[in-house]
Amino acid sequence: MIATTVRVLRQLRHDPRTVALLVVVPALLMLLLRYVLDSKTTFSHVAPALLGIFPFLLMFLVTSIATLRERTSGTLERLMTAPLPKLALLAGYAAGFSLVALVQVGVTTAVSLALGLSVTGSVGWLVVVTVGDALLGVALGLLASAFAATEFQAIQLMPVVVLPQVLLCGLFQPRAQMATVLRWVADVMPVSYAVEALQHVAAQPDVDAAFARDVLVLAAFVAGALVAAAGTLRRRTR
């Protein structure tokens, strides 16, 4: 499992442009947002939700394409003939990308705080939830790669998987105020819970049961997506 983590990180090291994009882009977007809104209060209001969206989006994109390459280049087939449990492979993957996500989240959070994001609760929890959210992007990316045959298709999956969650996560409209059907949809989307948890940490000094539930739901989605992704790794193909 550690071998796979090290390998993923080595691959990224040979691709500094991707790493730069992963680490710098969310922070730059936060900067942009701060000056588009031109108000610290509004920024503080919107930023927690975006902290849940940017890492998710980027990690989803990078993971789905990296895994798709693995499927099409034959390296996955080779790994499937090796004495390596599928979940160990996926865990190794997830761990490697999570380390990247941790750096990304650290930079993005630091920049957001410097730009005036006020966090009433603990910054530690903020980072935990954001990393969990990035991990969700990794897990869903691993899963989504099974439904794409080309990189072109993989990119097209992004708007399908990510944009509805952005629209319904509570950024534009609190979930409680949505039409019932939309709320049901939002309720089964994992990003909704990440955003709710982040908004909670930003606004409330203490964690409560609702926050704990959000975090658990998020963790369950990550675990579920990883197990489902393991199901898409086939030792035998047609």
Binding site: S73, T75, T81
Partner: peptide, 14 residues
């Protein structure tokens, strides 16, 4: 079993 597929199944970015 050692298996080398027809397409070189190795990582081009390593």
């Amino acid at each position: 079993i050692g298996y080398a597929a027809q397409t070189a199944a190795v990582y081009t970015d390593l």
